[in-house]
Design a protein around this nucleic acid. Sequence first.
DNA 1: CTTAGCATGCTAAGATATTAGCACTGAGAT
DNA 2: ATCTCAGTGCTAATATCTTAGCATGCTAAG
Lengths: 127, 127
Amino acid sequence: MTQVDGLSRRERQIMDIIYERSEATVADVRGALPEPPSYSAVRALLRILEEKGHLQHRQDGPRYVYLATVPYRQARESAMRRVLRTFFGGSASRAVAALLDMEADNLSEDELQHLAGLVDEARKKGR
Amino acid sequence: MTQVDGLSRRERQIMDIIYERSEATVADVRGALPEPPSYSAVRALLRILEEKGHLQHRQDGPRYVYLATVPYRQARESAMRRVLRTFFGGSASRAVAALLDMEADNLSEDELQHLAGLVDEARKKGR
DNA sequence: CTTAGCATGCTAAGATATTAGCACTGAGAT
DNA sequence: ATCTCAGTGCTAATATCTTAGCATGCTAAG
């Protein structure tokens, strides 16, 4: 999901978990995995992801805390563009329409008002 | 990217290509792959994806045309929800905001107007 | 001081994915 | 008729991913 490509199944799961939580320890990652493999297995994956340059870690007391090397926003944009291309022919407006359609019931009046403002702002900027 | 998970790197690439084009022949898929492996390799992947139930094929003259078994809309929603969860804490409005921010310059006045209408509609539906 | 718990370093086996190669078939061109 | 091209069926080797296991060090409790 994350960025370009080249990640395997587990690797991708792990990257997603890390982006979802900003950073995570081995135990965090393991706890978030659907059918968690052994502690060792998770550690190995994290090490490999670090070798490949997707992750880095810092020491927090006795344990490692992993975080992504590609900044959050950049990864997010990359993921969005990919969905855009794959499912919306690259059209952001079609994607927004789909989101509104999917989530209309879960959006509060406040949120909708805010979005209306953003759309308006974009229109002003356009001309 | 597509649905739940469990796809390997190439498998995922191929599924994305198929969703992007609705359907595709072996040559189509191979042509769309970044660093295309042999024709045989692509065929093998397609066969495996079909075995796993992600694809099906029909005969078109002498060749196979592959298409996804999971309907387009469902796969699309699944992919969206995944990005939502991973990068937007599940918030659709944050995702919409990011899309507008990313693509503001590429959105036409017509599209923006249309979106404004959709937001308005959602607000009416809400109350 | 010694033990138990929890963390990492390192290594190797096992499972899967990825690729290529060869055999076969059918259609159209010479 | 036969040659060649473009397709599929099938199989096997290679690469990569995924997992587990053992050794080690550090810290806190008994």
